[in-house]
Amino acid sequence: MKVQVRAFANLRGFAPSGDGEFELTLAEGATVADLIAALRIPAAVEAVVLVNGRRADRPTALAAGDAVTLFPPMEGG
């Protein structure tokens, strides 16, 4: 299945292309943890994950067409 991913700030560096906006193909039933692994984001690199605008934990299952947003924890605005 394919999901749409946008990665920001330092997490952009883990995008397959130079651009932080890309499509990713994952196995059916893949979870957020699988997506993190597919992008080779190490455990030491913190990432907040949103799926369709809702906070998702690592075990959250993804569905085809989901919009995934990745950003580092931010200390303020």
Partner: peptide, 10 residues
């Protein structure tokens, strides 16, 4: 701090 737009927009 304007990076925070990512969080609020999303």
């Amino acid at each position: 701090t304007a990076i925070t737009v990512v969080g609020t927009q999303a």
